[in-house]
């Protein structure tokens, strides 16, 4: 893998990059311009330039909100890996109609609007719903999980689990059964085979799925807003409030750029990790 192979060329990137340039570049440019105005309600109309909107992100409630959001995103990513890997393994081993059925089952929740699924969670997690009834049947007092961080975590995990499973299954599917058989015939235990062979080979899928889940849950709005009550405030809920209620567009723009930056850094890191791991796996 040390030698440089001639690739199909960067020209192939043109369509995708053109879409990003045409659709996203101008909005991001506008964000930069807006963020450079002094923060405050309708401040962008006064035309006063400053970097204070970025400084505003380091004071008040924002740091705590940012920490909570990143924590929720990391926990969601971890939960989707732990829950998604077994499903992906079973999925990649399944055949024919059974496999189609499982894929459909995994994707079907996403065909339901986020708002409707959030309502489903209030039916499940409410003290008057499934959870409350279950506790009552056990002789315990009715209690619920609504409007807690746990409810948000659960619903985010549900929302992003299908993507993690699809990404992992696609990656696991590329692992030839022959490779696994070879490892087993050389005396490796199932655990060793998994850790030494299957896991490293599934790293690209893990990183691809993880990127989506992390970025997606970092920038989620509807789920935290509908299930988190007034206490579980997140990064995008904060941006929404800055835009819609306080009209502080400069600070909202700065907060959006900060989110973009955090996401881009992590995505680049993931891409580097995935590329190197797979390069090493094939180099051996």
């Amino acid at each position: 893998m040390g030698r440089v192979r001639r690739g199909p060329g960067p020209l192939l990137l043109l369509p995708a990059l053109a879409v990003v340039a045409l659709v996203a570049a101008v909005p991001v440019g506008l964000l930069v311009r807006t963020a450079l105005f002094a923060p405050g309600a309708f401040a962008e109309l006064s035309g006063e330039t400053s970097l204070a909107s970025f400084a505003a992100l380091f004071e008040g409630p924002f740091p705590a909100v940012a920490r909570r959001t990143v924590r929720l995103a990391l926990l969601t990513t971890a939960a989707t890996v732990v829950l998604g890997y077994p499903v992906a393994v079973l999925l990649s081993r399944a055949r024919g109609g059974w496999r189609s059925f499982q894929t459909l089952l995994v994707v079907s929740p996403l065909l339901m609007s986020t708002v409707v699924r959030a309502y489903g969670w209030t039916l499940v997690l409410g003290s008057q719903g499934v959870l409350g009834g279950f506790l009552e049947n056990l002789g315990l007092p009715r209690a619920g999980l609504l409007h807690t961080e746990a409810a948000v975590l659960l619903a985010l995990t549900e929302s992003f689990l299908p993507f993690m499973i699809l990404a992992l299954a696609a990656s696991l599917d590329r692992i030839e059964p022959a490779v696994i058989e070879a490892a087993r015939s050389l005396g490796a235990s199932p655990g060793q085979t998994f850790l030494r062979v299957a896991l490293p080979l599934s790293v690209p899928g893990l990183v691809a799925g993880g990127s989506f889940v992390f970025v997606g849950s970092l920038s989620a709005y509807a789920t935290p807003a509908l299930l988190g009550g007034s206490e579980v405030r997140t990064w995008v809920r904060e941006i929404q409030e800055l835009v819609m209620i306080r009209f502080d567009w400069p600070t909202a723009a700065a907060a959006s750029l900060a989110l973009l930056l955090v996401a881009a850094l992590l995505l680049a890191l993931g891409a580097a990790l995935s590329h190197r791991r797979s390069a090493r796996a094939f180099g051996q």
């Binding site: 309502y119 209030t122 008057q128 619920g144 409007h147 807003a225 009550g229 007034s230 206490e231």
Partner: peptide, 19 residues
């Protein structure tokens, strides 16, 4: 106060459910 919500319909649903 259980929550300070943003959505009237969601609050109505909570009341209809008894939450």
């Amino acid at each position: 106060v259980r929550l300070f919500g943003a959505s009237g319909p969601a609050a109505n649903q909570l009341v209809a459910q008894g939450e």
